[in-house]
Amino acid sequence: HNLTITQGKLFFHYNPKLCLSEIHKMEEVSGTKGRQERNDIALKTNGDQASCENELLKFSYIRTSFDKILLRWEPYWPPDFRDLLGFMLFYKEAPYQNVTEFDGQDACGSNSWTVVDIDPPLRSNDPKSQNHPGWLMRGLKPWTQYAIFVKTLVTFSDERRTYGAKSDIIYVQTDATNPSVPLDPISVSNSSSQIILKWKPPSDPNGNITHYLVFWERQAEDSELFELDYCLKGLKLPSRTWSPPFESEDSQKHNQSEYEDSAGECCSCPKTDSQILKELEESSFRKTFEDYLHNVVFVPRKTSSGTGAEDPRPSRKRRSLGDVGNVTVAVPTVAAFPNTSSTSVPTSPEEHRPFEKVVNKESLVISGLRHFTGYRIELQACNQDTPEERCSVAAYVSARTMPEAKADDIVGPVTHEIFENNVVHLMWQEPKEPNGLIVLYEVSYRRYGDEELHLCVSRKHFALERGCRLRGLSPGNYSVRIRATSLAGNGSWTEPTYFYVTDYLDVPSNIA
C-alpha cells in the first residue's frame, strides 16, 4: 500500500525493539523526510534493546553428524571492536523451508527459537588472519532439518551509529543413524509349514526405512522333555500350542467401542483428552525405555581390526524358502538304536541362519518350516543398504507352526516275539517326523474274553527296548493296539495285532 503524509511529521519514542533503520525507511515511504526535528525521533529510546544489523554474515563451514552440527561463519568486528559482546545463534526444527525470524513471537518477546549466546573469538592483530567464530550444536535429532541463523550482539553506541551483522536463515539436516526397533511384532501360524509375521514401523526411523531383515531359527525343545518319565503317576503330560491366527481386521481397528449394538453396526467412541494424553505418555515412556535398553543392555560386537582377528559373527547367506525346513542338525536320541526319531534339535552355532529381506511392506510369510516346531524370529529395521547396512537392534518374537495331521501315527506293522515265561516283546517304529517329539506310547492289549488293559511306555523305555515287553501273560489269544502321544496330543491307534500265548508248562520236552 502507498502511504503519503502531505502535512505533519513523524514522532517515535520509547520503541526499544524498533531499529532506527526501520524508522528511516518509514520517513522515505511516507514522504516526511526532512520535516522531523532532532528530538522527534529519539536516538536513545528507539532500538536500544534490539540488534540492528546492516551487514550480512556468511557461514564459512558446515559439518553434520547424526546428532551434531558444527558451524563456522566469517569474522565480524565493528569499528570499535570492544562493542562486540558476542553472537546469538538461533535454531529450531523446520520440516519445511518457510521459516521466518519472527515465527511464534508474542507480545512478551518470546519466540519459538532456541538461542545460544556465543563469546567472540580472540581478536588477531592481523586483519587478514582473524579467527572464524563458530559453535557445535549438540543433542539434535537424527535425520531432522533445522533452520539456523546467527547475528551479532553489540553494545549501545553513544554516537548512535547503527552497526551489526546478521546471516540469512539456512537449512541444515542432520545425518541418518540406526533406527529404533520395529514396533509390535506379531507372529502367527496359518499352516503346519508357515508363519505369518506382521509389525509396525519404528517410532524413530532416523532416516528413510529402506528394508527390513527377518531372521528365523528353529528352537530346540526343553531338555526336561527328553529326561522326564511322563508315565509316572502324578506327572502331567506336557503340551505345546501353536500360535493362533490373526483376529479379523475389524476387531483390530483402534479407537473402536468394545460393545456392539445388537441391531447392527455401531460407531466408534472418540477417545477423551485424558485417554489420548495417557497414550502419549505411555508411548514416550516406551521410547525412553527402549533407548535405555539399547544403550545399557546391548553391547556392540567388536569388529575385526587390522591384526587379522576374525569377526566372530557368522556370515549372512541367503537361502531359498524351500530350504528352511531342514535348518537344524538332527541327532538321534540314543545312538545305539537307529530307529528312534531325530527330534532332539541342538543347533550348531556355526550354522548360517536363513533370512529374508523385506522391502516396502511390514509383513512376511515364512514358508518351508517344520510342522509343530518353535521358531525364534528376529526382526531388524534398516535405513541404508549400501555401502553397508545400517540397521536397528533386533526385536524378537516366537511362534510355533501348526501340527501336521497323521504325523504322530505309527507307520509300519507292530511285530512281536514270544519268549519263555510268557513274555512277549512288542516292537514298532517311532514316527519319523512327529509333531514336536514323542513323549510316550500307549499300549492297549486284551486277552479274548477279558477286559482291555493299558500300559504306558516312556520315551526312554522305548529307546532301550525298541518297544516294550509284556510279562506274566496268561495263555490265550491276544490283540494289541499302540498309539503315540506327542507334544500336540495323541496320534491314531494302530491296526490290531494278534498273537497267541501258550502255557509254557505244557511245552513238550526233548528229553527222552
Rank of each mutant, 00 (worst) to 15 (best):
P205K: 02
N206M: 07
G207Q: 00
N208M: 06
V214E: 00
V214I: 12
E221T: 03
E221R: 15
S223Y: 13
S223M: 08
E224T: 08
D229Q: 11
D229L: 08
K233S: 10
L235R: 07
L235A: 04
P238N: 07
P238S: 04
S239T: 10
S239Y: 15
E247P: 09
S248I: 15
S251Y: 07
E258P: 09
Y259D: 08
G264M: 12
G264V: 05
C266W: 11
C267P: 02
C267E: 01
P270A: 07
P270K: 12
T272E: 11
D273T: 02
E281I: 15
E282I: 05
R286I: 03
K287G: 02
T288D: 02
D291N: 15
R301C: 10
G306C: 05
G308P: 15
R316S: 10
R316Y: 13
L321W: 11
V327M: 10
V329A: 11
A330K: 15
V331R: 13
N339F: 10
T340E: 13
T343D: 03
H352L: 12
V358A: 15
V358W: 15
E362N: 11
S367P: 10
F372T: 03
G374V: 04
L379I: 13
L379E: 00
Q380E: 07
Q384I: 10
Q384V: 15
E388H: 15
E388Q: 14
E389D: 07
R390T: 04
A394F: 04
Y396V: 15
S398G: 04
A405S: 04
A405K: 09
A407S: 09
I410M: 05
G412Q: 12
I418F: 13
F419C: 13
N421Q: 06
L426V: 15
M427N: 14
P434R: 05
L437V: 10
I438Y: 03
I438W: 04
L440P: 00
L440R: 09
Y441A: 01
E442H: 05
E442L: 05
Y448F: 15
E452M: 15
S458C: 14
K460G: 07
H461Y: 08
H461N: 07
E465I: 10
R469K: 06
R471M: 03
L473D: 00
N477H: 08
Y478K: 01
S479A: 14
I482W: 00
R483G: 02
T485I: 11
G489E: 15
S492M: 12
W493R: 01
W493A: 01
W493E: 03
T497P: 01
F499D: 01
Y500E: 15
Y504C: 03
N510T: 00
